[in-house]
């Protein structure tokens, strides 16, 4: 029997060599591609931002392109809206501040994560520039029941969040009449009350955590200036 040490290299030289070669190849691939991948991931999120801050009417048929910190919204009419995005973190939530190029904040988009009926729900919620109203909701990822809970990603459910007051927590209700009766009500999805409630809880928690800090920052930065009124209803 060979002593283990003596035969180590004669047994394993191929694996060591391949390991080095493959490792080198992976380093090369990674160095070349990682900036592209990071840009892809960011662009994917940024692309959603205008829809969460601007009213839907302004975005009908618009084409959204992302380059770096700039989002260009090309409307169907041909005019282009140039938005600047600033990224920061507030109260543990990712915050995107959207402003017309060189202007005051148009609105904010905050990312919130919380548990749904199945797995975590990861969503973006839009806040108006004056922090008074919610301006939109977008679900980044969810694994709710198909055809029931996953309706949270669709417009009929999301519309309850657009224009709702940001000053008080949202309330989930069960009848359409009740939901229409006052702002800040969210009509629960049929047979998916838990999913509906989860989304509202995440939005409430996110807004409650972020809003006071944003308000404090805004009043400190521009004590004389009132919050800019953006186009969101």
């Amino acid at each position: 029997m060979n002593p283990p040490r003596a035969s180590f290299f004669s047994q394993s030289w191929l694996i060591l060599l391949l390991g080095l070669l493959f490792g080198g190849a992976l380093v090369a691939v990674h160095t070349n591609l990682s900036p592209v991948i990071a840009a892809n991931q960011r662009a994917e999120t940024l692309r959603q931002l205008p829809g969460l801050v601007l009213p839907a009417a302004e975005l009908a048929g618009a084409e959204i392109t992302v380059s770096g910190d700039r989002i260009a919204v090309r409307r169907a009419s041909g005019e282009t809206l140039d938005l600047a995005v600033a990224e920061s973190e507030v109260a543990g939530h990712q915050l995107y501040t959207l402003a017309a190029a060189g202007g005051a904040p148009l609105g904010y988009v905050v990312r919130g994560i919380g548990s749904g009926y199945a797995d975590d729900i990861d969503l973006l919620v839009g806040l108006s520039g004056d922090l008074e109203r919610l301006t939109g909701l977008f679900v980044l990822s969810q694994k709710e029941t198909p055809a029931l809970g996953d309706e949270i990603t669709k417009e009929p459910f999301r519309r309850w969040f657009t224009g709702a007051p940001a000053t008080a927590p949202l309330v989930v209700v069960k009848s359409a009449a009740e939901a229409e009766s006052a702002p800040g009500r969210v009509l629960a999805l049929t047979a998916a009350t838990i999913s509906s409630r989860s989304v509202c809880d995440i939005v409430n928690a996110t807004v409650a955590a972020v809003r006071p800090q944003l308000a404090a920052a805004a009043s400190a930065a521009a004590p004389a200036e009132e919050g800019e009124t953006d186009g969101g209803r």
């Binding site: 047994q11 191929l14 991948i37």
Partner: peptide, 24 residues
């Protein structure tokens, strides 16, 4: 040691494929 070499080779190409997909 052949299975070890197979796995090493496959893992390398899978990582390359994964990165290529994420990029393009």
């Amino acid at each position: 040691l052949r299975i070890l070499v197979f796995t090493l080779t496959i893992a390398t190409f899978v990582t390359i494929a994964d990165r290529l997909l994420a990029a393009y």
